[in-house]
Structures are given as structure tokens and as C-alpha cells.
Simulated assay, not measured.
Amino acid sequence: MRLKSILLCLVTIIILSACSSSPTGRNQVVLFSEGQMSSLGEQSFTEMKHELPISKEAKINAYVQCVTNAILHYVPIQASFSQWEVVVFDSPQVNAFALPGGKIGVYTGLLNVAVNQDQLATVIGHEIAHVLADHSNERMSHAHIANAGLQISNIALASQDYRNEIMALMGVGVQYGVLLPYGRTQETEADIVGLELMAKAGFDPYQSIELWKNMAKASGGNHTPELLSTHPSHDSRIQELTEKAQRLPVFTGTKPNCVKAS
């Protein structure tokens, strides 16, 4: 019982000292400073730019930058960095990402699935939302806490009294609960915040639904079951985005006109 009490106290102290709230009001545990996260993001992005081919197509770069700039106009100024950087990677991957420190990467393969500016804005808004919601910090913090707990647990493994209980805690709960990149809660939150951003910028939020229909077709129906996936299922995502889009205010300004490269 003493080990369990010590472990509980340590985890409680860490959580209470590092509590914050996400943009949707969800409680978070973040252990690292904004400066630390920005530095890690910049280092990772620099490595990626050295390892992956970067697109030289001027029209593609201008198109991606146009969509991104329209969204960034509605993004608050960040304390840990002054400027967002966008790089288009020449790769067939259907993907995009944003890192702490304002680093955004878009793979050219995404443009085959996100077929217009509104669908591309859905993805870019979603990835920017991950940064605004401090999801990388939250993910790393959870992993850090889990690792600390496992190290303490290893001491107790010498005692048969705790072995079965601790081994259970080290199993599915850790593997699928905190260590997978961006859990489903974070992905859903990024969907919500990202949809709000792209709609504020004048992009059509209902095109987010069409995007995920395209994603479903591109996957050929072969995707990981929702229970063990870091992303919500396509059906769940489409339903949630539809409900959110219906609640957004109608845009009355000038819509962006970002021309996709043919």
C-alpha cells in the first residue's frame, strides 16, 4: 500500500502543478514551457527540411501559402514565436502537420484529396489548432508522467504482491491511453477549433464534410477501428463536423480566392 500511496502522491503533485485549460475549456496537464516546445518544434522542422524533398512548384507553394495566410489572419499572436513558416514537401503522403514554434508542413499528396481551397483550409486549420491547443505539450507531458510512473513501478516488481496489478497498468492503458500521438480527444478538439478558424477566414465549413468523405474513399474502407485509433472514425468525424458547421455564424465578408495549381 505504501508504494501505491507514494505513486499516487507524486502523480497528483505533478498534475496539480501543471494544470491548464485548452481552447474548448478542457483540463490539460502540460509540464513544458512554450519556449521549450517551440525550440523542439524548430529542431524537428529543420531536420525534416534536410531529410525530405521540398516542392519547388511556385503555383503549389503560392496556393498553400494563400490558404494558410487567410487562416493565420485570425490566429492570435503567439508569445513564443513571431512568425509561422509553411513548407510544402514533395511527397505522395496524404498528410499535413503543424509543430510548436509555428512550423507548418503540407505534403503534395494531400492536394489530391483536399480538392479545393476550403478542404485544404480544413486540414491546415485543424493542424494549426493542435498548436494553439498545446497538444504536443500535453502528449509529451502524459508520456513523461507515464514514464516516471513506470520507473517507480519497476522498483516494485521485485515484490510479487504488486506484480500482477502493476503489469496490468503497464499494458493497454498506457499503450493506447497516453502514448499514442494525438488521442481522439485531441483530434476532435482540433476539428472543432480548426473548423472555427477556417470559417472565420471565409472558407466553407461544410467542405470539411466533403474532405472526410474523400479521406474515407482514399482509405478504401481500410482504417483502424475507432477504439484503438488516434483519430475518430470517418463516420464519427463527419457527424461531428456537420453538427458543428450548423452552429457556426454565417460568413458575410469577402471569401478567400486561393487558386489551386492545375
Score class of each variant (00 low, 15 high):
K200Y: 00
H231T: 10
V88M: 09
W84P: 01
G202Q: 04
A143E: 12
A58R: 13
D235W: 00
N61T: 07
K4E: 11
N27G: 04
P92Q: 05
A114N: 02
E138M: 11
W212T: 08
S91P: 01
T254I: 15
A168Y: 12
S159R: 09
G101M: 05
S21D: 02
F45H: 08
G220F: 10
I71N: 00
F32A: 10
V67A: 07
S80C: 03
L179V: 14
T188E: 05
D134W: 13
L110D: 05
A70T: 03
A148G: 09
S208F: 09
V64D: 12
H130V: 10
P100R: 01
Q83S: 14
P225S: 11
S153G: 15
F251D: 08
S153N: 07
G102T: 05
T252C: 00
A129E: 09
G194V: 10
H50V: 02
N61G: 12
T108L: 12
D161N: 12
S82Q: 15
S22T: 03
H234K: 02
D204W: 06
A96T: 07
N222V: 08
P232R: 08
V250L: 05
F251V: 09
N27C: 00
V178R: 02
L31M: 15
V88G: 05
L150H: 06
L7T: 12
D161L: 08
E51P: 01
R184Q: 11
G109H: 04
I15W: 07
K49N: 14
A158N: 10
L195M: 14
L111I: 04
R237D: 12
N95H: 01
G221T: 02
H130S: 06
I152P: 00
Q246V: 03
V172Q: 13
Q207P: 00
S229F: 05
S236A: 14
G177L: 06
L132K: 08
V75R: 04
